[in-house]
C-alpha cells in the first residue's frame, strides 16, 4: 500500500485536492464551436451539392446562428481567461504548437467567413434589403458568383474547427482521459450532430428535416461507435488510462455520462428520429433538444472528469 501526503500543507485554489481550473466556460466554448462548425459545414455541403432550393433552412437561415455562436464562444473563452486585460496577446503571436493558439486563430478566420456567408443571402432573407455602400454591393455580387468556392473553404474550416474542439483537450498528455487521438474525430462528429440538430429544430420543411435526420442518424451511430472505441482503448491502456475509464465505469461520472450523454443525448434521439422517419409523430423539438443537451453535457463532463485524471507517481 502506498500513501502520499502533502506534509507542508498544500491547498492551492483550483489546483488541490484535484485540478479544477476550467469550469463551464471552456465546455461552452467547445460546444458553441462544434455547433457552428456543424451548421457551416452543412450549409456549404448542400451548396456544393447544388441543393440550395431543397435545403433552404440549412443553407440560408441556420447559418445566421453560426456567427452568433462563434462570438458567444469567443466570449466564453474570454470569460475563462484569468488575466483578461492581456487578452489581445492571443492575437499578436502565432504559435502552431499551441492548440489554444491556433484554435483562436481558426475562429478568427471562420467567424468573418460565416458573416460573409450570411450577408450574401441577406437579399433573400430580407426582401427589399440593399447595402448602403456601393462597394458592398460589388463585394456581394462577387461572393454570390464564387459561392461554391466559399462553400468549399467553409467546409474545410468547419472540419478544422470541429476537430480542434477535441484536440484542445487531447493535446494534454498530462490528463490521461483527454490524451487520446480519438477525441478529435469524436468531438467533430458530436459537434456536427449538434449543428444538424439545430437546423432540424429550425426547419419547417418536412422533406428537409427528413434528409437531415437521416444524416444525423449516421453521425449518432458513428459517435456511439467512437465512444465504445474510446473506452476499449482506455481499458487496454496503462494504469492511468484505466483509472480514467473507471470514472465512467462505476466512478463518480458513471450516471451523468451514461444517462445524460449516451441515453438522453444519443440513443433516445436516435430512436425518435427513426420512428419519425417511419411516420410516427414525435414533437419536432424533442430530438434536437435532447441532442443539444447531450452535446453540452458531453463536453462539460469530459472537461470536469479529465482534470481529475493524472499521472501516478
Amino acid at each position: 500500500m502506498k500513501e502520499e501526503l502533502f506534509v507542508s500543507g498544500r491547498n492551492i485554489p483550483n489546483i488541490d485536492p484535484y485540478l479544477n481550473i476550467w469550469h463551464w466556460q471552456i465546455p461552452l466554448y467547445l460546444f458553441l464551436g462544434g455547433l457552428a462548425a456543424g451548421i457551416l459545414f452543412f450549409a456549404g455541403y448542400f451548396v456544393v451539392r447544388g441543393k440550395e432550393k431543397e435545403m433552404q433552412t440549412t443553407v440560408k437561415w441556420a447559418p445566421i446562428l453560426a456567427p452568433i455562436a462563434l462570438i458567444l464562444g469567443l466570449f466564453a473563452l474570454f470569460l475563462d481567461l484569468k488575466h483578461k486585460l492581456y487578452f489581445w496577446q492571443l492575437y499578436t503571436t502565432i504559435r502552431l504548437e499551441s492548440p489554444m493558439g491556433w484554435g483562436a486563430w481558426t475562429l478568427m478566420i471562420i467567424t468573418p467567413l460565416s458573416f460573409v456567408w450570411v450577408a450574401s443571402y441577406m437579399k433573400e432573407l430580407v426582401p427589399g434589403w440593399h447595402w448602403k455602400f456601393d462597394f458592398l454591393e460589388k463585394f456581394e455580387a462577387w461572393v454570390i458568383k464564387n459561392r461554391v468556392g466559399l462553400a468549399w473553404i467553409m467546409m474545410i474550416y468547419a472540419i478544422i474547427l470541429g476537430v480542434y474542439t477535441g484536440i484542445l483537450l487531447s493535446a494534454f498528455n498530462a490528463r490521461p482521459l483527454w490524451n487520446t487521438s480519438i477525441l478529435g474525430p469524436l468531438f467533430l462528429v458530436s459537434g456536427f450532430s449538434t449543428g444538424l440538430a439545430t437546423i432540424i429544430w429550425m426547419s419547417k420543411d418536412a422533406n428537409e428535416r427528413k434528409v437531415l435526420s437521416r444524416i444525423d442518424l449516421v453521425f449518432i451511430f458513428i459517435e456511439l461507435f467512437l465512444i465504445i472505441h474510446l473506452f476499449m482503448g482506455f481499458l487496454a491502456g496503462s494504469q492511468t488510462a484505466i483509472e480514467a475509464a473507471n470514472l465512467f465505469l462505476g466512478g463518480e461520472f458513471t450516471v451523468s455520462f451514461w444517462v445524460f450523454v449516451v441515453l438522453i443525448g444519443l440513443i433516445l434521439p436516435a430512436v425518435f428520429e427513426t420512428i419519425e422517419i417511419w411516420g410516427i409523430h414525435v414533437p419536432k423539438w424533442l430530438p434536437p433538444a435532447m441532442i443539444l443537451f447531450g452535446g453540452f453535457m458531453f463536453r462539460f463532463i469530459m472537461v470536469e472528469a479529465g482534470q481529475i485524471t493524472r499521472y501516478l507517481y
Partner: peptide, 16 residues
C-alpha cells in the same frame, strides 16, 4: 505581462 491566464499550461503539467 504576456500571460493571458488561459490555464492551458496548468492543464499540461503532469506535476501540478
Amino acid at each position: 505581462h504576456k500571460c493571458i491566464g488561459c490555464g492551458a499550461c496548468i492543464q499540461s503539467c503532469p506535476y501540478d
